[in-house]
Design a protein around this nucleic acid. Structure first.
Ligand code: SF4
Ligand code: SF4
Lengths: 144, 144
DNA sequence: TTAATTTAAGACAAATTTATCATAAATGAA
DNA sequence: TTCATTTATGATAAATTTGTCTTAAATTAA
């Protein structure tokens, strides 16, 4: 479904957001301990999300990562996925054709577009706030 | 969505099936010309589908690949995908967790399972026959 | 039987993704 | 200032996926 980079990014974001709700900045070591992710790779991905202005960071002692509380509701899953994996999951062709076209459809076309639209819709309507709240409330987990 | 191997496999199967409806065996060169796929790699994938008994083959001159007409309706997209990519698309976790559990769900759980079920359902209910008929009738294409 | 053709199989190579490591830059405390 | 701490960045390495190439085995016609 998603790349490993995207998996780590999503889990990290959710964890960081859940802690930002408690006004806690978190270091990358804490993030990976709570998401079961490789530290160096994850640091690079979260760093990319900082560049994309999805996550905030502070260097030095007492530093770490956080997410602005007021923006959590605006940041959607689709933003994270797009920032890391690009838009291939939304626009890429399931059979590798160069374009997708209702007039000259591939054999799976009308079946694929339905699923793709559902996925797009789901990712567009799911906010970080919502996911982080569930985690904070103990209704969901990020590791097993 | 699918691996390249799976993309090539799916397109090949559909093309081979469409020709088998006309009682034509097709050589791998013809398959890749009509599916825009790399010849050696595709030959390996189609060969794997022969081992899985999804495609039939004959070596030597006048040889080639074909699919038994009577089985086309029974062969579903899910069989192809499983044969090439395994069951990760059906059972793998979108966030890379070790198991998926309704009791201890990941934050995306109930949103993901819905989409995954829809995809599973679609692939399970779509036969090679159906796809090949559309192609043969000129209602769909495999290259652009 | 011989030669041509085609799939079968496996070694090898290239490209991409995943992951690590070393060093630089920023920050804050003492 | 000095030093410890933490993120930022880029080089490098490992693993996986994608792809090619060579040779073997099977089949058929002549
Ligand atoms: S519907 Fe068909 S043509 Fe369109 S993106 Fe999906 S596989 Fe490609
Ligand atoms: S619903 Fe959550 S736990 Fe289950 S497979 Fe998907 S991502 Fe993993």
């Amino acid at each position: 479904m998603f790349s490993k980079a995207c998996e780590y990014g999503i889990k990290s974001i959710i964890y960081i957001a859940s802690q930002s709700m408690l006004d806690r900045r978190v270091k990358i070591g804490e993030v990976v301990e709570n998401t079961d992710s490789p530290i160096a790779f994850t640091a690079k991905i979260v760093g990319a999300l900082v560049k994309e202005n999805i996550v905030q960071s502070v260097t030095g002692p007492y530093g770490g990562f956080y997410i602005d509380k007021h923006r959590m509701e605006q940041i959607k899953m689709s933003d994270i996925v797009t920032a890391i994996d690009g838009d291939s999951i939304f626009n890429g062709c399931g059979l590798g054709l160069k374009e997708c076209d209702d007039e000259q459809p591939c054999p799976m076309h009308f079946k694929f577009v339905q699923i793709r639209a559902d996925l797009k819709n789901m990712l567009n309507s799911t906010s970080i706030l919502e996911l982080a709240e569930g985690l904070k409330a103990g209704e969901s987990i990020l590791m097993r």
